[in-house]
Design a protein around this nucleic acid. Structure first.
Lengths: 120, 120
DNA sequence: CAGCATCCTTGAGGATACTG
DNA sequence: CAGTATCCTCAAGGATGCTG
């Protein structure tokens, strides 16, 4: 297995927030979903889209996301085996959340490197 | 210092998403912001709201969030020193994102314990 | 009350190599 | 192509104790 929760159970167990963060909290996870939001992708396509992710991690993430019903894995029984991953209905529902994260992230990002004087 | 990014720089540097996830990704961070969303809170109030968080972690998180402009720290120079934390404008902007996370998290949570097949 | 210093554990995530 | 197996690193986060 790969991951369930971040570590033990930091936030209160039974908290939906933890459930989601344990999902989105994983490194690369938002990126993966984001890439999938533009349409189904194959393993190598994802790797090319995210050159810095290792095969193992991508594999683990993908499997985890599949088990959670966020995406579906379709094996195309072609001569060179190809597999593509696509968001499920549930996966699609994550998009708005990720979008929100990206948007707020942009603001954070700007503040981080913009000399916006400290006002407190 | 406490934390900048999850570890090295998993997702592509310069990505707003990473900026946000490095913030929300920290254990307890969403919880903290969530609690603050209901109004300013003092250190001990936050601790009581989240009994399982250690003082250190709360402290680290709070300082980090302050440095990032997500919240402001106000020291009340009373006899028993009291400090309260309140979300900044930027912090407030995180609420929708967290709300989205919570909502999707609920769905995930339901699916986690009520998969297609249900036993017991 | 608020919060910092210290030490330790843990496991996520990366690198590398091998396989069907 | 699409993984899986193995090993290793490292820093996030928890526990404890002390201070202003």
């Amino acid at each position: 297995m790969a991951l369930k929760l971040r570590k033990k159970v930091p936030p209160p167990p039974g908290c939906p927030m933890s459930a989601c963060m344990s999902l989105l909290g994983g490194a690369w996870t938002p990126e993966i979903i984001w890439n999938l939001s533009e349409g189904a992708r194959r393993f190598s396509e994802l790797r090319r889209a995210m050159p810095r992710i290792s095969a193992k991690v991508l594999s683990v993430r993908l499997k985890d996301l599949e088990e959670r019903g966020v995406l579906v894995r379709s094996v195309l029984a072609t001569t060179p085996p190809s597999v593509d991953y696509a968001l499920t209905d549930l996966g699609e529902e994550l998009i708005p959340a990720i979008r929100a994260i990206v948007e707020v992230g942009s603001k954070l990002y700007l503040r981080m490197r913009a000399p916006t004087d400290r006002a407190a």
